[in-house]
Write a protein that binds this DNA or RNA. Structure first.
Lengths: 149, 149
DNA sequence: CGAGAATTGTTTGTGTACAAGTGAATTTTT
DNA sequence: AAAAATTCACTTGTACACAAACAATTCTCG
């Protein structure tokens, strides 16, 4: 006698795509990016905002690759992100006199002003992303999520 | 009396990048992709695997866009993923006689064999991704994560 | 000091991901 | 049945993300 829609053994071997971490992480991040894109912070993407914020938070100048690592980007990705931020006049690059391989990055006043204005907006984005969870659930979720990084 | 490293008001207005959902989701998914890439399932990416698995799980033929929606991809992304799977001989496309706009997709025996072989591997990938969490934490995390999709 | 190792920034190529627009075909509405 | 709206597949352009390779520079260690 056939079982359910297939018959015999479970052809999917108990694998349910919609319950897999990877699939859910991808969908959750997609949803977050959609929320982010709706809010337009001077047209910045999540990655661009994170990068500019990290630079903003740095006490002094920092090299390109070093900044990229602080935002979890590889060197190739960093190159593109920095170029786009520089083209928008949000940061400046200058040769490091002490290490001729390096470019030192610094946020411009325009960049810093954008970050300051953006803080309340990105707080709202975080709130909107976590909206389906209760306050207690949010704490739990963020604590566990941080363990998976 | 100065507070912390700066003095006076908090210049970051209480915004800590490493505690934001978006930033953590991005990093967690990056980590998952790294684990996935290490395991090589016939060279498939997470998205390609999800797409082929969904097609595998479909009872009959399905159109390209419809399959894409089941995997949370837009039409443009779907086009590229399907092309690559087709080039590898993992699925076939044929014109729908009843709707001349549509291409009907079907997994090939090669595609189905790949999925069957891959199931234990992707189960290991899920396990490795969730490894930092206890069994109870995993259930909680997946339940909350699903709410954010 | 000098050879090998490591780091910095860059480029190229591949693979998602989305926006915006196209033309063909189908469905819905009137 | 004709008009309007929708759907399907596709294309172009932009933006991450990683692998792999490269030259220039700096560091390390014998």
């Amino acid at each position: 006698m056939a079982t359910g829609s297939g018959g015999g053994d479970d052809p999917f071997l108990g694998y349910v795509l919609d319950e897999q971490v990877g699939f859910l992480l991808r969908k959750a991040y997609q949803r977050h990016m959609t929320i982010f894109a709706r809010s337009t912070i001077g047209g910045l993407t999540p990655t661009q905002f994170s990068t500019l914020f990290r630079l903003f938070a740095e006490p002094g100048p920092i090299s390109q690759n070093a900044l990229g690592r602080l935002v979890a980007m590889d060197a190739a990705t960093t190159k593109g992100v920095i170029s786009r931020l520089e083209n928008q006049g949000l940061l400046t690059t200058q040769k490091d006199p002490n290490d001729k391989r390096r470019y030192l990055l610094q946020s411009t006043e325009k960049g810093r002003a954008l970050i300051r204005d953006a803080i309340p907006v990105v707080k709202g984005i975080t709130e909107a992303t976590l909206e389906p969870l209760t306050k207690a659930e949010r704490e739990t979720f963020l604590r566990l999520l941080a363990k998976l990084c």
